[in-house]
Design a protein around this nucleic acid. Sequence first.
DNA 1: ATCCAGGCTCCTG
DNA 2: CAGGAGCATGGA
Length: 313
Amino acid sequence: MIALYSADLTPTAPFRFDLALQYLRTSPSAVVEQVRDGAYLRAIRIESRTVGLRVSSGGTAEQPRLLVEVLGEEARAADLPVALALARRVFATDAAVDGLDAVAEADPVFGRLVHAYRGLRPIVIPDPFEAIAWAIIGQQINISFAAKMKRALVDRFGSTVELDGIILPVFPPPACVALLEHERDLLPIQFSRQKSRYCIALARAVSAGELDLGAVAALPDEEAIAALMVLPGIGRWTAEYALMRAFGRPDVMPAGDGGLKQIIGRDYGLGRLATEAEIRALGEKWAGWRGYAAFYWWFQLQEERRPVPPSRD
DNA sequence: ATCCAGGCTCCTG
DNA sequence: CAGGAGCATGGA
């Protein structure tokens, strides 16, 4: 019998859990997350145990409510507060998004997205090591291939936990990746020499205690970016992406991103790719919400490239 | 084959 | 300090 503990969570309105799930269903970045039966499902590690986190919706956009459950043989009642805190981070349930309206009015181009995706918040990958490793893997290659690499990494070196017949993959922890070698371990799963070096260096820094991701999480944006950029293979794009995806920083945007250059160049009628400088200049108008801007444009790109059939799993 | 894809490093001028 | 070449890898 699977232990199960649950509690309610009330996000700030407006909140669109359905859009969050749509993002997760269609994003290649969601490798260890699952969407099934209208719920978000992922394994989380608490102390040395692995349990399942399940989040589903009970409310509406204007009266949002989430159900958070902890499940698994190893689950304990004391895990519930941890799971709640995690769910709040993943879905940014505490964000006060009123400020978006003023930004939308100041910039109608971004405003169109703000309107279309009202209630959607950037989704967090709650394991910062996984999020940063994913950022490295995703550098300069198409993301569906990046997702394939991440899946291979999880299959080969991660683990799994079974919850009531559902098998959830678990991303390998830093201590595990720290022991890998390029030729023997990562070359066979299509990592380039440089990417495997970067991932292993990150894992070793974290597991050796040289890089304290918990401490990075507490730093102001620019300092956190600088702290990550010390590592080999982590440039500005990677650090900014990591801040968005690992820590849910609402105002951090990887302005050098290829996808953003493309779609912003198009949406602002430039007739060419926008430059990083142009994106940063435009971003002044989105101050406070630049991470939302990046996320919304990526979501739009995702929708354009792979339109989702009306939901039904 | 050639170009591209959610960059980074290192080297020029 | 800005700009660009070279780097790796698989997919279209």
